[in-house]
Design a protein around this nucleic acid. Structure first.
Lengths: 267, 267
DNA sequence: TAGTGGTCTAGACCACATA
DNA sequence: ATGTGGTCTAGACCACTAG
């Protein structure tokens, strides 16, 4: 086993064997109990975060990981089960376990919940309107957990479905995370934006929260989407997170829902 | 073991032992492979569906269920794991596994994703405006998987937060499912509507899909919510499902998002 | 103290993909 | 034929709750 892959100490054994604390004490001193498989999960997440296995690649087999961490295969399985449930890993029977990637038709609509009212799901065309450095407004800075005035990259784009302009959105990211991102680079790129962030900058979106409101189209929205001012639009504010729940992107979009709807599943 | 709780046959053993088909054939004849724990899950769902264990009650312990179905505890565990992940069952360490119920503060906002822009989540007050029998319009009938013209119950209500009218919605259910539901019964009832359906009519909502649009307030919305006509509102169409993915309720609501937003989590 | 769910292990075998 | 993930079992022990 290499020195940078620490074996996992069983808390119980270690604590009790060391004679320092009893199982009871372990709880009372505030050391949060965390089962072995969660520690394994955390270690796997660390490896993903530092890029040991890249999106699209396979991670080591369960038996390999079990040997590496000195636990049983079942414990590794349970750790991977949770990561797969969170769409961070993807299991493929007979082939291996893979790091999910935003370069996949299959996953294109995981973060884009707009569906046509009738007919099948259809791809979107991005048209980039702007890309520049800005100083973080207080409101955006708070969401990104950076200081007001810090350097951000701001992108404005228009999304069309079947040729019809449907979404206009502004996107902000910390400038340090996407150094070298230019308007040309965006315009030349084909595919999902999160795919570009992933491969070009090593920034991987894991999950996002969206706040949805109904608003009236203003001048910007009406001209870009070719609508009358005052047309009701969905305003969607998204905060996207990478590993460790670190916020790395804010979007504010306006969606025309004349022929499309936002789909939400309640479980 | 009682006669109405069949033991689960291991497909492999049964088929091979019977000498009819080989494991290879089993697949080719189209008998879909389903692991044991999914068969157990289906049996538990059947018991829930026919009311053997009611919302709020505990189901038998894992060891009891294992004995009943003649499988190992681990297999029962995996079946229950999935049901717990779907919010159908709720595990409480040391106490047992319980059937989830809509009578719980904890679960009040599982199906109501409207949050105040600032401040803590707050309860809602229902004011019932109407409750009557109607013939199913084609559009609603299709969603409920019944025939156009079938008898439905239609409910109209207004929801207020902190005294401010915020939501108006129409609700349709198959009349046969909620026999005896009257306006008085609704008005006297305190608590979530799904709680009433659950305890009074044995209709339990398991999950729901919502389609969201932005629309302009019409006459009905503006008068009930005390808004100007044309104010942008969220229009939310919900279809709720009970066991076996049977649709049992359609809602069409209009939400004022001046001080609230709809929260959606993308994973 | 007894009963419940939660964790961890070891081993056997099945299903699937690939060479 | 080999290696991967998927299922199932049996047993030991831990964590939590309640009588």
């Amino acid at each position: 086993m290499s020195s940078n892959t620490p074996s996992v100490a069983r808390q119980q054994d270690e604590a009790v064997a060391a004679g320092n604390v009893s199982p009871q004490e372990r709880l009372s001193i505030g050391a949060a109990f965390s089962p072995l498989y969660r520690q394994i999960k955390a270690l796997i997440l660390q490896s993903l975060d530092r890029g040991e296995w890249k999106p699209g690649e396979a991670i080591p087999s369960e038996l390999d990981l079990a040997a590496r961490f000195k636990v049983s295969q079942g414990t590794v399985r349970k750790a991977i089960d949770e990561l797969a449930a969170e769409n961070i890993l993807l299991r493929r029977q007979g082939k291996g376990t893979f790091v999910t990637t935003h370069h996949e038709e299959r996953v294109r609509f995981r973060f884009l919940r707009l569906c046509p009212d009738d007919g099948p799901q259809v791809g979107s065309d991005s048209h980039y309107l702007d890309c520049r450095r800005v100083r973080a407004p207080a409101e955006i800075a708070r969401l990104l957990d950076v200081k007001t005035g810090d350097s951000l990259v701001q992108i404005r784009r228009r999304l069309s479905f079947s040729g019809k302009p449907t979404i206009i959105e502004d996107i902000w990211l910390p400038g340090a995370l996407v150094k070298g991102l230019t308007y040309e680079r965006l315009s030349d790129y084909k595919g999902p934006l999160y795919g570009l962030f992933e491969t070009e900058f090593g920034v991987r979106m894991i999950r996002a929260d969206e706040k949805i409101r109904a608003v009236a189209a203003g001048p910007a929205e009406s001209s870009v989407l070719n609508l009358q001012e005052g047309t009701p639009l969905l305003q969607i504010e998204r905060v996207s997170y990478t590993y460790g729940d670190r916020p790395v992107e804010v979007r504010r979009g306006h969606y025309c829902t004349a022929n499309y709807h936002y789909l939400s599943n309640l479980n």
